[in-house]
Design a protein around this nucleic acid. Structure first.
Length: 450
RNA sequence: GACCCGUUCGUCUAGCGGUUAGGACUCCGCCCUUUCACGGCGGCAACACGGGUUCGAGUCCCGUACGGGUCGCCA
């Protein structure tokens, strides 16, 4: 039987890293086994579900490249894929329970009669977990009273307003959609016995369960929207590559067992399996996430780097179609972690005048003979005929010799004079991209500042 | 409060009875170098605690502590 996994988000907010990671694991598992990945929208709570949220989630999955074989926008023969449109199916399943005498009404709500027996979740990650719902659900904790109170273990599956409840629709849809493997957050582990009870009531063999540990923020508590790195759309905006985010999410809670941290999507598909899923919760580390991104940046083809950088170049007002952009990007790719950092590295090549960093200029001024160095430099460069890297270097050497100093003594004022700062991309390639005329002009202007 | 899951460097993890406890991020040092990076080399740094079992325990068992989760007519 073919593997069928699903991601079943509730459209009540943003696409969160926890949800995205769940989606990724389901996607990887399906792709690894050549099965299907299904997207199902759990929008039974009409009060909280919004189309805006749905769009954000769809956009996020699309950006990550987690394509679904069945679901919204794609279709499929087990649809519809929005639970709000599946009421007729739920009604049919409910009547089966009614006929079996397994449900009853309680103040307008419908409750499922929980059998007095033990259910064992055979979890691929957590092992066997056994619970008696009748016993476990006979008391509940009242958060306000801060104590346990009597409770009805028979859980509600349909609200008085007619809306169906998560546990019920989740199970019905997993049956109807032929889901074979349920990979979800560990917060659902305690719910699973309820689901097993429903599967049994419908006489259906339950799917394989794998409850994955949770991602926490650096302080060890639940990630919230406010935590850095929590929301998927922010990754795109701050200059992450989708595959790098996938790579990092895969690492948070899964290990390929070998000493490898950087994975392409193909490698992840090839290596992902449930046995590699970690048992304990993990804390999010933004620094490592950025490092993974930098590694992916280094491996990008020139064309892909240009495409990925485009929005950030445009935002910075840089001429994306300029012939020198590809070369400039190569100067930047090894020194940044995020795409958003690229413009600052290369913009000096494309502006009229560099932005002079005051402290850098001050450093040049404080050196003995700074003005002489710049004019010697200028003279040396003026002699350069063909404006190639080697010729430029030779020009600088010539300038240095005329002063009786080493080449390095001129590189520093040259960098500040032309690029405006002591830090930045490699000097000679930048000079080359700028062109002789611009370089000489900038050096003249810089002389006047000294 | 009850029940469930978990616990290896600060963080992500490898380890599945005998290891100098390995790798990665971070941090620090050195090298490379025209700056900053990149890269290379090296360093700091961990088996929560207490009992067992065993010739031998990070690895198996039981407690304790700590962390997380669940206990909705949210999902």
């Amino acid at each position: 039987m073919s593997v069928r996994t699903r991601f079943a988000p509730s459209p009540t907010g943003f696409l969160h890293i926890g949800g995205a990671r769940t989606a990724l694991y389901n996607w990887l598992y399906a792709r690894h086994h050549g099965g299907q990945f299904i997207l199902r929208v759990e929008d039974t709570d009409a009060e909280r579900s919004t189309t805006e949220s749905m769009q954000i989630i769809l956009d996020g999955l699309e950006w990550l490249g987690l394509d679904w074989d069945e679901g919204p926008g794609v279709g499929g023969d087990r649809g519809p894929y929005n639970q709000s449109e599946r009421v007729a199916i739920y009604d049919r399943y409910l009547s089966r329970l009614e006929e079996a005498g397994l449900v009853y009404e309680d103040e307008g709500a419908i409750r499922f009669r929980v059998p007095d027996k033990e259910f064992t979740v055979h979890d691929e990650v957590c092992g066997d977990v056994t619970t008696n719902l009748k016993a476990a659900g006979s008391r509940r904790y009242d958060a306000e009273l801060k104590k346990e109170v009597e409770a009805n273990p028979d859980f509600v599956i349909k609200r008085p307003n007619g809306g169906y409840i998560f546990h019920f629709v989740n199970v019905v849809d997993d049956i109807e959609m032929g889901i074979t493997h349920v990979i979800r957050g560990e917060d659902h582990l305690s719910n699973t016995p309820k689901h097993l009870a429903l599967f049994e009531a419908f006489g259906v063999e339950p799917p394989v369960f794998a409850h994955i540990p949770l991602n926490l923020n650096p302080s060890g508590t639940k990630m919230s929207k406010r935590d850095q790195g929590a929301l998927i759309h922010e990754y795109r905006e701050s200059g992450f590559l989708a595959d790098a985010v996938n790579n990092y999410m895969a690492l948070l809670g899964w290990s390929g067992k070998e000493d490898q941290d950087v994975f392409s999507m193909e490698e992840l598909i090839g290596k992902f399996d449930l046995s590699g899923i970690t048992k304990s919760n993990s804390k999010f580390d933004f620094e490592k996430c950025k490092w993974v991104n930098a590694e992916h940046l280094k491996q990008l083809s020139p064309a892909a780097l240009l495409e990925a950088s485009r929005p950030f170049l445009e935002k910075a007002g840089l001429p994306v179609d300029d012939d020198r952009i590809p070369a400039a990007l190569e100067l930047a790719r090894d020194r940044v972690q995020l795409l958003s950092e690229i413009p600052a590295i290369i913009e000096t090549i494309f502006v009229d005048l560099p932005t002079y960093d005051p402290s850098s200029v001050e450093k040049v001024k404080s050196r003995e003979g700074a003005a002489e160095a710049v004019s010697a430099l200028r003279e040396g460069l003026e002699q350069v005929e063909d404006w190639s890297d080697d010729a430029i270097k030779a020009g600088i050497v010539a300038g240095a010799e005329s002063l009786g100093v080493k080449m390095g003594a001129l590189m520093f004022p040259c960098r500040v004079g032309v690029m405006g700062s002591t830090s930045g991309a490699d000097l000679v390639p930048v000079l080359s991209l700028l062109g002789k005329e611009v370089v000489l002009r900038r050096l003249s202007g810089f002389s006047e500042m000294l």
